[in-house]
Design a protein around this nucleic acid. Structure first.
Lengths: 206, 206
DNA sequence: GCAGGTAACTTACTTCGAGTAACCTACTGG
DNA sequence: CCAGTAGGTTACTCGAAGTAAGTTACCTGC
């Protein structure tokens, strides 16, 4: 009754690894990190537990793998979105829009990112925080480009504010399905861009 | 050699419970939720594990107890700070300052709050989110008081932006010990208050 | 000051899941 | 068709969450 082998066994390493990440992302997002067992992921992948350990070392390692991939994709998306944008305001708007669109399309990757707090190994925390920093650095750079005189610390603070606002608003959007990416972007821009623009425009903004 | 009994045994329930919360808060903050064992907390309290289960039901229940207490204290503090403030701008500033001061003084309660993501039981998530909502509602009310014509959804979004900015900036402050509560408040106010004020002032602001 | 009731507490388990050692097998090129 | 290895499995250990059943300090009335 097995017509052409329903599911292949013995995949090449890279492909198996990607498949594991797909399933783990899904299960972690569904159930939460704690409530998920390695046995369950293994079963859904169609493989035995030691394979997961072979490729990811530990449960936390697997979570880190998932988060790493998701954050990297997110960063790529926003970076792509801002290339070709016209001026700092546009960069910010396009970046925000790309972010809200991404998390709208990849809800499970997004709920995964909220499991970050579960990571305890310090080196891993830094690794994840490093990718996050790339995001804030990107924004800080936008500000710095806009106003070369701005205190770098202040630019950093501003970037943190943008990221914080945006992540929190994304969470809020889940409870408000009527608020889409465009609307969310508008909310952030209205407050945050006006905030910085007011501060700077008096002698600039041709 | 035991002069007047170094540590008393058999405390009244309420007192023991409070002591458990104190210790659990400390250990969870130190090691993280996952890396902490109930046996360890029990030992530090000077009591056996089933007592913890007697009072808190589960490990997660204990964490929820800690978070609940910490968020409630935080909310009280900010609420106290804003009573007697003069006008919305002042309310916001005093509230922010109280927040940053609180987390500066209670670093361990604050790192505890970041373990929220570990909670999996849906009812508990809602309970915690409920307290958080009180915070955002407080802010949304400030905005609504300032501009009675504002769309309520927009006021909510604004409140989320304030909370998100603030929490993220608080995290950032940990890596930047040179940035104190006053400075952090200024950063948030500069962006966020200007953001909303600009939007509203054209026809108001006597 | 001593019965006895109960609130506070303990010992000694069960269970479940992370992590691992040791062994196995399908596919590859020669 | 044989051998080497990448990909895979079975069957365990061990630590920590959670629990059943029993024990002891303390108070209260007599």
């Amino acid at each position: 009754m097995t017509t052409t082998e329903p599911r292949r066994k013995r995949m090449p390493k890279a492909q198996r690894k990607a498949q594991m990440l797909d399933i783990a992302e899904q299960v972690f997002a569904e159930r939460g990190y704690l409530a998920t067992s390695m046995d369950e992921i293994a079963e859904r992948v169609g493989v035995s537990k030691p394979m997961l350990y072979e490729y990811f070392g530990s449960k936390e390692g697997l979570l880190i793998g998932c988060i790493h991939r998701a954050r990297t994709e997110l960063l790529d998306r926003t970076q792509q979105a801002v290339t070709g944008a016209d001026g700092p305001e546009d960069v910010l708007r396009e970046g925000l829009l790309a972010f809200f669109e991404f998390i709208g399309e990849h809800k499970q990757a997004w709920s995964l990112l909220r499991q970050e707090a579960a990571i305890t190994v310090p080196s891993a925390v830094e690794e994840i925080e490093g990718i996050r920093r790339q995001q804030t650095d990107l924004i800080a750079a936008v500000i710095a480009a806009f106003d070369t005189d701005m205190d770098p610390t202040e630019a950093e603070a501003f970037a943190e504010i943008v990221v914080g606002s945006t992540e929190r608003l994304a969470l809020w959007c889940e409870r408000r399905p009527d608020v889409g990416p465009a609307q969310a972007t508008t909310y952030v821009m209205e407050v945050v861009w006006r905030g910085v623009a007011t501060r700077l425009t008096p002698d600039q903004h041709p």
